[in-house]
């Protein structure tokens, strides 16, 4: 029997054709494996959405009602009582935009927290990469988000708010936001297995984080130093970019887009790294 080729062996021990064969085989195997895990992630995400709304009377309408009620409350408090202004964009539209994009992040993270600890039975039965669970949780919230986005579009038309062709950049910015949410999701899902306080703590952190992000107020009128600090927050710059491409047609603070990009890449890889480090402990702890 011929000796199998291992890619971690020194290169001098392999023939050039051997390297090519091994790489091709490895890539085919990896892509095939990735396809299986992607299918599993999709199924788990769909199952998550179905079970969430299956036995409720209003079903998927909850995905629309939630942002509407939140926007109504905040709109009343900030728009009517505190006279917050977001001219030239109507405040309701301004805030609903912030709430819609923020809710995707916050709900995604909150779903991911319990994704491992809440699926102990499933983990005990079959083997699959555990990282699939928080990924599916975040993607399930993305499905909810798509419904909220429809509500936002309706409101934009109701209030005759002009939008720009640059709105077509939204999917690109959303990709960044999905990766950022996934990174934070991996982090909290893994930590929550070790320390169950994380679940409570994350809710609190998200609340504080929301007020430090331009969800309900525009940053344009703030002092430049304060504005810079708020936009250093990757979620702050992502929200600002999302609003800018829809309502102003250009990025008002383009340099901060790089902050969002670099933090997203770091948080995503950092989340995976921490998840992998804690993963071997899951079976022991649970």
């Amino acid at each position: 029997m011929s000796k199998s080729i291992r890619m971690d062996e020194p290169s001098s021990e392999r023939s050039p054709s051997g390297i090519r064969v091994a790489w091709t085989e490895r890539w085919h195997k990896n892509i095939h494996q990735l396809g299986i895990w992607a299918e599993l992630t999709r199924n788990l995400a769909v199952r998550d959405v179905e079970t969430r709304y299956k036995h409720s009377m209003l079903g998927l309408y909850w995905a629309i009602i939630n942002p509407l009620v939140t926007a109504a409350i905040f709109g009343f408090v900030f728009g009517v009582i505190f006279h917050a202004s977001s001219k030239p964009i109507p405040y309701v539209v301004f805030m609903l935009t912030g709430i819609t994009f923020w809710n995707f992040f916050a709900n995604g993270v909150m779903s991911a927290v319990g994704s491992i600890s809440g699926n102990a039975a499933l983990l005990a039965k079959i083997y699959f990469p555990r990282i699939v669970l928080p990924t599916a949780s975040v993607l399930a919230r993305f499905i909810d988000f798509m419904f909220s986005l429809l509500v936002l579009i309706v409101f934009i038309f109701i209030y005759h708010t002009p939008i720009y062709w640059s709105s077509l950049w939204i999917p690109v910015i959303l990709v960044l936001q999905v990766f950022f949410t996934l990174g934070i999701g991996y982090l909290v899902a893994a930590l929550n297995v070790l320390y169950r306080d994380v679940n409570q703590l994350v809710g609190l952190i998200l609340l504080v984080w929301m007020y430090f992000s331009p969800v309900m107020y525009p940053v344009t009128n703030l002092k430049p130093s304060l504005r810079s600090i708020l936009l250093m927050n990757p979620m702050g710059s992502l929200l600002q970019m999302e609003r800018d491409v829809i309502f102003t047609g250009h990025l008002q603070y383009p340099l901060f887009a790089w902050v969002a990009l670099t933090w997203t890449v770091f948080v995503f890889f950092g989340g995976i790294s921490l998840f992998r480090r804690i993963e071997p402990l899951f079976a022991e702890v649970m």
């Binding site: 902050v259 670099t262 933090w263 890449v265 770091f266 890889f269 950092g270 995976i272 790294s273 921490l274």
Partner: peptide
């Protein structure tokens, strides 16, 4: 993650 942490 260390490389990207430095970059960020």
């Amino acid at each position: 993650s260390r490389i990207f942490a430095y970059m960020a």
